[in-house]
Lab assay of single mutants.
Amino acid sequence: DESNKPILLPNESQSFERSVQLLDQIPSYDTHKIAVLYVGEGQSNSELAILSNEHGSYRYTEFLTGLGRLIELKDCQPDKVYLGGLDVCGEDGQFTYCWHDDIMQAVFHIATLMPTKDVDKHRCDKKRHLGNDFVSIVYNDSGEDFKLGTIKGQFNFVHVIVTPLDYECNLVSLQCRKDMEGLVDTSVAKIVSDRNLPFVARQMALHANMASQVHHSRSNPTDIYPSKWIARLRHIKRLRQRICEEAAYSNPSLPLVHPPSHSKAPAQTPAEPTPGYEVGQRKRLISSVEDFTE
C-alpha cells in the first residue's frame, strides 16, 4: 500500500519547517483550565467582593489541597506544564494547583491565590483569567444561592456549585447557560463527603469543560472538536499529503500518493430520524474511523 510507505522529508523547505513548528504547539495530551472561586458570607451577589477574597475557610483550604498538586509557578516550564496563561514571573501569584493523568493536564485558576492589587480596583487582572475559563468551581460559603452570571465573562458556560453542609458533607450541583443544557445535566445534585469532594468536583468540572469545548467549536462548523492527539494525527497526515504533492510536482515521474478510497458502495440502511441538538453535539466527541485508517 503506497499510502503507508515511509517518505523522504525535504531537506530545505520553509513550509515544512513551519508545519513542524506548528505541530510542536499541539500538545500530545488534552488540556483544561478551571476557575475556582470562594464566596464568603454576604458575597453571593457581589463580583468585586468575591474576586477580592485572599483566603477562605478551613474546609475550603482542605478542598484545594485535594484538587491537585501545589506547584510554584516560577519553577514551571510552560512547554511541559500546562498553566492556561498564568504568568511565571509573579504577575498572577506564586502558587497554583494542577492535576494530570496519562492523557490530560488541568490547571486551576484560583482567585484566592492570585494577588489582590490596590491599583486594580475592579480586579481585572484576576478576571482576565477567571472570566475566560469555560467552567468555574464555586465554593459557596455564603449561606445564600449563587446565580450564574454573578461573575461577568463571555465564556462562563458552567458552574460547579459546592455548598458546604453539616457533618462534613457538601451539596454539589451544576448550573449552565441555556445554550449548554443539551450537553450538561443540571437536574441531579449530589451529597458528597469532604473527603471525596475534590475528586467529584474535579471530575464534574473536567466533563463540563470538555462539553464546553465542543459547544464552543460550533463557531467553526468545519472543524469538529477532536482530542489533542487526534489533532496531531490529522496535522501529520495533512503534512504527509502536502509533501507527496510537492514531490510529485517537482518530479512528475513519481506517483502521487493519495489516501486509500473505498470503491465499494456502502450498504443501504433504513433512514433514521434526524438526531436532535443534544445527540449531534455528543457525537462530535467521537472520532471518525477515517482518522485511523487513511
Rank of each mutant, 00 (worst) to 15 (best):
residue 259 P to E: 14
residue 139 Y to P: 00
residue 247 A to Y: 09
residue 29 Y to F: 09
residue 273 P to I: 08
residue 10 P to C: 15
residue 84 G to K: 12
residue 139 Y to R: 00
residue 189 A to V: 15
residue 25 Q to D: 14
residue 275 P to D: 12
residue 178 K to C: 12
residue 138 V to Y: 01
residue 200 V to C: 03
residue 24 D to E: 07
residue 181 E to G: 07
residue 7 I to C: 07
residue 124 C to S: 14
residue 192 V to Q: 00
residue 5 K to L: 15
residue 123 R to D: 11
residue 172 V to P: 00
residue 9 L to V: 13
residue 22 L to W: 08
residue 39 V to A: 02
residue 272 E to V: 12
residue 141 D to Y: 00
residue 255 P to V: 11
residue 226 P to I: 05
residue 48 L to H: 13
residue 154 Q to A: 15
residue 272 E to S: 09
residue 88 V to F: 14
residue 265 A to F: 07
residue 110 I to C: 05
residue 185 D to R: 02
residue 80 K to A: 05
residue 141 D to C: 01
residue 219 S to A: 13
residue 86 L to T: 15
residue 188 V to H: 07
residue 201 A to C: 08
residue 272 E to Q: 06
residue 68 G to F: 03
residue 167 Y to P: 02
residue 128 R to P: 05
residue 289 V to S: 13
residue 129 H to W: 12
residue 132 N to K: 14
residue 122 H to N: 13
residue 273 P to E: 13
residue 128 R to Y: 09
residue 66 G to M: 02
residue 88 V to K: 12
residue 259 P to C: 15
residue 174 L to G: 01
residue 53 N to H: 01
residue 267 A to F: 07
residue 243 I to M: 13
residue 63 F to Q: 00
residue 8 L to C: 15
residue 244 C to A: 11
residue 100 H to F: 14
residue 182 G to Y: 10
residue 160 V to H: 00
residue 280 G to T: 10
residue 249 Y to L: 14
residue 155 F to L: 15
residue 18 R to Q: 13
residue 294 E to L: 07
residue 286 I to L: 09
residue 257 V to I: 06
residue 87 D to H: 06
residue 44 S to K: 02
residue 268 Q to K: 09
residue 98 C to M: 09
residue 166 D to S: 04
residue 159 H to S: 15
residue 253 S to N: 15
residue 137 I to R: 00
residue 294 E to W: 04
residue 264 K to N: 13
residue 2 E to H: 08
residue 271 A to T: 09
residue 35 A to G: 15
residue 64 L to V: 05
residue 108 F to R: 01
residue 65 T to L: 07
residue 80 K to R: 08
residue 53 N to R: 01
residue 200 V to M: 07
residue 159 H to V: 10
residue 129 H to L: 11
residue 53 N to V: 01
residue 146 F to Q: 01
residue 35 A to F: 02
residue 209 N to R: 01
residue 26 I to S: 06
residue 79 D to F: 04
residue 271 A to P: 10
residue 90 G to P: 12
residue 148 L to A: 15
residue 106 A to L: 12
residue 187 S to V: 03
residue 96 T to R: 06
residue 229 W to K: 07
residue 160 V to T: 01
residue 205 A to P: 00
residue 266 P to H: 09
residue 210 M to Y: 05
residue 278 E to H: 10
residue 89 C to D: 14
residue 161 I to F: 01
residue 100 H to S: 14
residue 110 I to M: 02
residue 143 G to T: 03
residue 25 Q to L: 06
residue 5 K to I: 15
residue 249 Y to R: 11
residue 3 S to A: 07
residue 67 L to N: 00
residue 224 I to M: 08
residue 108 F to H: 01
residue 17 E to I: 13
residue 33 K to S: 13
residue 232 R to S: 11
residue 141 D to P: 00
residue 163 T to S: 05
residue 61 T to W: 06
residue 218 R to L: 13
residue 52 S to K: 08
residue 175 Q to S: 06
residue 73 L to W: 15
residue 3 S to Q: 13
residue 185 D to S: 04
residue 285 L to M: 10
residue 57 S to N: 03
residue 60 Y to W: 02
residue 272 E to T: 09
residue 134 F to P: 02
residue 83 L to H: 14
residue 196 N to G: 04
residue 152 K to F: 08
residue 100 H to L: 05
residue 5 K to N: 14
residue 230 I to S: 09
residue 135 V to D: 00
residue 117 K to D: 09
residue 76 C to K: 09
residue 105 Q to P: 03
residue 193 S to K: 02
residue 139 Y to N: 00
residue 74 K to R: 10
residue 34 I to L: 03
residue 211 A to W: 05
residue 181 E to L: 12
residue 214 V to G: 02
residue 85 G to L: 04
residue 257 V to L: 12
residue 274 T to Y: 07
residue 112 T to Y: 01
residue 197 L to S: 03
residue 188 V to T: 11
residue 168 E to W: 03
